[in-house]
């Protein structure tokens, strides 16, 4: 079975983000990029699927040359080959999905894994869009997955609970924390990854339907207030919690 896992290369969540001088992009200076954390879960699930069912895991990413770092990480974890769909410019979610859908079609993949969202733009939509373009079934925010032949039984997180879904291949699964615990790369995997190739091709042409007008940081939090240091401050504290913060 051909298994595709789609990954994005995103700023590390621990990095301090600075908005660039154009007010439309982030300043990439000093920013560390990593494999999107949710995509690590997707890679793990793809590898587990391969281990259970056999097949090949192909990692696909849309973006500039640097994305190869994250593809390499997925290869070191155990994926078989990588494809970089090159594009140095900003591309909206529809554009990313289009490029991916075309590649997945060419690969004839039966099951496609995504992280439930990438932690840069946080649109949480590329997996679903891709499924729609391909005409595949889709389970988003999956926290449990069972594959029995063509049949998929998945659990997904919904507001206040979980729902169990049955569907069938071909399908797109977007992965949520809790689905699995991603493995670390092992020596053997890293050595093997060095011999694996990353195929590069231009991403399918697409016109953005979304334009970024402005990027700005949220207003800083107001500093805390110290009402007093002993019990005499309690009535005032209670009043503030009731009237200002409105939490009690």
């Amino acid at each position: 079975m051909k298994i595709v896992v789609c990954v994005s290369h995103v700023p590390d969540t621990a990095t301090k983000i600075v908005v660039g001088s154009d007010n439309k992009t982030i300043d990439a200076n000093g920013v560390t990029y990593v494999l999107n954390p949710y995509d690590e879960i997707a890679v793990e699930e793809a590898l587990k699927t391969k281990e259970a069912q056999g097949g090949d895991v192909v990692v696909v990413s849309v973006g500039p040359d640097n994305n190869k770092e994250s593809i390499r990480k997925a290869l070191a974890m155990g994926a078989d080959s990588g494809v970089l769909l090159k594009d140095d410019n900003y591309r909206d979610s529809v554009g990313v999905a289009k490029a991916l859908a075309e590649e997945i079609k060419a690969q004839d993949a039966q099951i496609v894994f995504f992280g439930k969202q990438s932690v840069d733009y946080d649109n949480s939509i590329v997996g679903q869009l891709t499924a729609e373009m391909l005409g595949y079934n889709c389970v988003s925010v999956a926290v449990d997955l069972k594959l029995d032949g063509e049949k998929i039984t998945a659990e997904r997180e919904i507001e206040g609970g979980r729902e169990v879904i049955e569907t069938s291949l071909p399908a797109v699964i977007t992965c949520q924390k809790g689905l699995n615990e991603p493995r670390y790369a092992a020596l053997k995997g890293i050595m093997a990854a060095k011999r694996k190739t990353i195929e590069e091709k231009d991403a399918a042409v697409s016109e953005n339907s979304v334009e970024i007008l402005e990027m700005k940081k949220p207003a800083p939090k107001e500093p805390g207030k110290i009402v007093g240091t002993d019990s005499s401050a309690v009535p005032e504290l209670v009043r503030l919690l009731k009237e200002e913060a409105k939490v009690i």
């Binding site: 590390d12 621990a14 560390t32 990593v34 494999l35 954390p37 990480k73 070191a76 670390y184 790369a185 092992a186 020596l187 053997k188 995997g189 890293i190 050595m191």
Partner: peptide
């Protein structure tokens, strides 16, 4: 060499 852990990023 199959099950030892190698960090590939700061988080690891």
């Amino acid at each position: 060499n199959e099950k030892s852990w190698f960090a590939l990023n700061l988080k690891d």
